[in-house]
């Protein structure tokens, strides 16, 4: 089915995950490629979030493998996933309200010196971080009122844009977006969607979780549908198979 024009950045083979009696993932396999937006679809409880949490290191898989650029990896923590080049933008708790955009950008991976000191005792290269964050926001055309004020003062869309921009800078392999527009109005959603398209142009692999069919049709190069922990379909979404996609999601196959 998949057009394998390149080797997948991310490949998941037969992922299994169980939470007590709940079998959240039942042998799910999928691939993500550079320069491609993969929509991950499914009704609530289909296993999308669980799968994404396994990829971003929040949960471990019970069985199955994760390959990054052909190499088998284990991702025991979110920090390990980030080190491996996987960035995740969560719907909420994406940003630190009390920090500026630049401080948010580099939180947890501050540029600091001297390198012989333990990480926590190093001194921040604040000006360098400010400069580089500003350059990235400029490049991605994210407009913010003031770069030196805390993000608490910024709108939902501006905050989500900062989170996506941050992910794009540090993702060397894959950006995962978990319902990035769920809490946003129309205009602000627009901006975030443009940003997602920009991520693709810059050669990232993107996994997009969304409930919005319009966004899927507009952005996704490929869609994978999960239902009750199983992968039930994979296709290239367009206007003609939109109905098929919906019936795959809700499980009303004819």
């Amino acid at each position: 089915m998949t057009a394998t024009r390149s080797n997948p950045v991310l490949a998941i083979r037969n992922a299994e995950k169980q939470f007590g009696a709940v079998h959240a993932l039942k042998g799910v396999s999928l691939e993500a490629h550079r320069g491609e937006v993969l929509a991950l679809l499914g009704d609530n409880g289909a296993g999308k979030s669980t799968l994404v949490k396994c990829i971003s290191g929040v949960h471990g898989l019970d069985a199955g493998q994760i390959f990054l650029e052909g190499e088998k990896v284990s991702l025991p923590s979110p920090a390990a996933a980030r080190r491996a080049g996987i960035e995740t933008v969560y719907q909420d708790l994406a940003l630190f309200d009390n920090l500026t955009p630049a401080q948010n950008f580099y939180c947890g991976r501050e540029i600091a010196f001297p390198s012989w000191l333990p990480a926590g005792l190093r001194f921040l290269s604040s000006r360098k971080m400010d400069r580089e964050a500003a350059a990235v926001l400029e490049r991605l055309k994210v407009k913010l009122p003031k770069l030196e004020s805390p993000v608490a003062l910024m709108s939902g869309g501006q905050r989500q844009a900062i989170a996506v921009a941050r992910a794009s800078v540090f993702a060397r392999k894959l950006v995962i977006l978990d319902e990035p527009t769920a809490a946003l109005g129309l205009r602000e959603s627009r901006k975030v969607l443009d940003l997602v398209a920009q991520l693709r142009v810059e050669g990232n692999a993107v996994i997009l979780i969304t409930h919005n069919m319009e966004h899927v049709l507009e952005l996704a190069d490929r869609a994978v549908v999960l239902r009750q922990g199983r992968k039930v379909g994979e296709l290239k979404p367009d206007r003609n198979n939109q109905q098929q996609l919906v019936s795959l999601i809700v499980g009303a196959e004819s």
Binding site: V58, S77, P78, A79, R82, R83, T88, Y90, L93, A94, L95, F96, D97, N98, L99, Q103, C107, G108, R109, E110, A112, A119, G120, L121, R122, F123, L124
Partner: peptide, 27 residues
Amino acid sequence: AMVWGRWTYSVGGQPDAALRMGIPVKG
């Protein structure tokens, strides 16, 4: 001026996010 301070502010701002960013929250 130190990374420790930035971590302290991030733990105070959003403890869960700090954990996900790989900050040693407990320490």
